[in-house]
Design a protein around this nucleic acid. Structure first.
Lengths: 126, 126
DNA sequence: TTTTTATTGCAACACAGTTGCGTTATCTTT
DNA sequence: AAAGATAACGCAACTGTGTTGCAATAAAAA
């Protein structure tokens, strides 16, 4: 696949991620841009950007999909194995820069992995 | 909360987990037992067993809920921080016995964490 | 400018999980 | 053992993300 045409939707969505250091959920993007673009379009553009290695996705608190900019991923392979931190108070999700060492698992082939850590973020820890 | 009454549904569901070394998804339990019990009942019993520290839950591949027996959890606190392995071919989910050391995260309070590793299980690796 | 076809919007759908409420079953009290 | 209290159940209708089919539109190629 791959993003072929530079459309308004692609441009606006990329802009959202360039202006945000944190991850954004599909739902939030629809809340934000749903009057300008149809939700179907938003879901489809996010899908494509992920296939292209521009964004990576993961599942947050309630199984909802979140997206964030990739670092060093290609369309061929998503290299991001970094953990995500979701605040249980404000809902915010950060990409953590730490690398996690996966445990040894005999006889199995690891393809993807995602580590979601939940708790209270800097602002919500009183 | 806590499971108070020993009903048929509780008994049958506990039995499912006692006979299974792997995790089971809520959906699969409904497929299996949906003619005997209403799906609402199944969801509610699973909820309760989790509150009681009998089962722990986590999110699998598509954000679906999976349950497995707890080891050393109490109603007060779920101690299970072990990772889960889901096979992308057959869908099976195992609880891994390895402990994962979480990365240091300054200024944040970690409450829960879940590590889902995906790939091919022993039987599906050719 | 015309043609090609990727992308969009719309409406309807899919489906795991939830909620309200009247009924039933379990446990307690007498 | 029977009556009363209430937790648990079944049912039906509902939520809310996310998806699909298809006709209309717009980006890029010819």
């Amino acid at each position: 696949m791959g993003v072929i045409r530079k459309t308004k939707a692609v441009e606006v969505l990329l802009n959202e991620f360039n202006n945000s250091p944190v991850a954004i959920s599909a739902k939030k993007l629809i809340d934000r841009l749903g009057t300008t673009f149809n939700k179907t379009t938003i879901y489809r553009v996010l899908d494509k950007l992920e296939d292209d290695g521009v964004l990576h996705s993961f599942l947050g608190k309630e199984g909802h999909k979140w997206y964030a900019k990739c670092n060093g991923c290609t369309a061929a392979e998503h290299e991001d194995l970094h953990p995500h931190f979701q605040c249980l108070s404000c809902g915010k999700v950060d990409c953590l820069t730490v690398r996690v060492s996966l445990p040894e698992i005999p006889n199995r082939k690891i393809e993807v992995s995602q580590l979601l850590i939940q708790g209270k973020c800097e602002e919500c820890v009183v």
